[in-house]
Simulated assay, not measured.
Amino acid sequence: MRIVVTGATSFIGLAVIEELLHGGHEVLAVVRPDSPGRKKLEGRKGIHILECGLDCIGNLAYSPVLAYSPALAYRTDVAGRIDVPGGSNPVRGADAWLHLGWEGAGSANRQNPQLQARNIGYALESLRTAATIGCTRFLFSGSQAEYGIYRTVMKEDGACSPVSEYGKDKLEVCRRASQEAERLGITYIHARIFSVYGPGDHPWSLVSTCIDTFLKGGHMEMGACTQMWNFLYITDAARALAGLLLAKAPAGVYNVAGEDTRPLKEYIEEIHGLCGGKGTYEYGKRLPNAEGVVSLMPDISKLTRAAGFRQEVSFREGIREMLKLRY
């Protein structure tokens, strides 16, 4: 299959692309013209890089983008239009679209209404563009933030009351894109992704910060950490997303999470132990993040049925993989 991927240089984007390439699929990676992460994709067999920001994503249907492909040797004119043999558009005939692009996903920007709202338009325009170029399937990367403050198991058909602008706008994409996809005749998959961790994650994430601090013998000040939590290793997350996109899962919402749900404290203490007991930590010293104190208790039975997903990497194994890169 030929699959368009936006957010291609992101933490999850790079992992999903690896999963797709491993399966023998062709990837059309959409990157910003100034993206420093594109070097991780250049020269890779099976990858064609399309330079296009989210703010002009609709242009992909009409070829006014810079394109880089060692295999096809794309050339471009001064206006940035693709000049390839026969004048063909490299994205025409793509089979599916994986939309991972989202501006302001970090915690510091999740309450910025103007920044977050722009992403709704980018997602909907991507969906329309996918339909225009012939894609039959479209997967959008939603978030557990859509649920809001939950005290019970999170099921896809449960009520959603998001707290942050980030969660509200992801949920709005779900509502509007589901309706638009039906009109366009394209299968819309809305993947609510929970806490993904692993090599390549942001250095300020909880897991990365704990590992770095503990290994240096430092001190971690955290919140109460009494809430339930769920972590999913990056390669498992990539398999789940690729599975939903490729396994002909029916349209709808799917939780993408692991099978191991327990108090966040237990995860912290496991990281500390795997770091050799170095460093110290203290609970009750930090304010909650943008979503407030949230318990993550996802039900992934729908994902399992649709894509045959099973978690392969335990939290202990995942942390050990991250530690290998630091020694």
Rank of each mutant, 00 (worst) to 15 (best):
G217T: 11
T209E: 06
S208H: 09
A224Y: 12
L245G: 04
G217W: 15
I186P: 05
G243K: 10
P250I: 05
E221M: 11
C225Q: 07
A238C: 09
N230W: 03
K248S: 13
A257L: 05
Y197D: 00
A247H: 13
A240S: 03
L246N: 08
G218K: 10
L244T: 03
W204E: 15
F194H: 10
I211A: 09
I193P: 07
V256I: 05
S205L: 14
A251G: 08
A249W: 05
G243D: 08
H190D: 08
G185E: 11
P250E: 03
L245W: 00
D212G: 14
L232S: 02
H219C: 02
C225F: 11
Y188L: 06
A247L: 14
L244W: 01
K216I: 01
A249C: 08
Y233K: 01
G185C: 11
F231S: 07
L241F: 15
H219P: 00
T187P: 06
I186K: 07
Y197W: 11
L232E: 08
I211T: 09
M228I: 02
D236C: 05
L206Y: 15
G243W: 11
C225W: 10
A224G: 06
L206I: 10
I211G: 11
T213M: 09
P199N: 13
V256H: 03
H190P: 03
Y188F: 14
G258W: 08
V196W: 12
A257E: 08
V196L: 10
Y197E: 00
T226A: 02
I234R: 08
L232M: 07
A224F: 13
H219E: 06
W229Y: 14
I186N: 04
A237M: 05
L241V: 12
P250T: 10
P250S: 02
R239D: 13
F194Q: 11
D201P: 10
A242M: 11
V253Q: 07
L241S: 04
F231E: 08
I186L: 09
Y254W: 01
C210G: 01
G252Q: 04
M222K: 05
M228G: 07
A249P: 02
T235C: 10
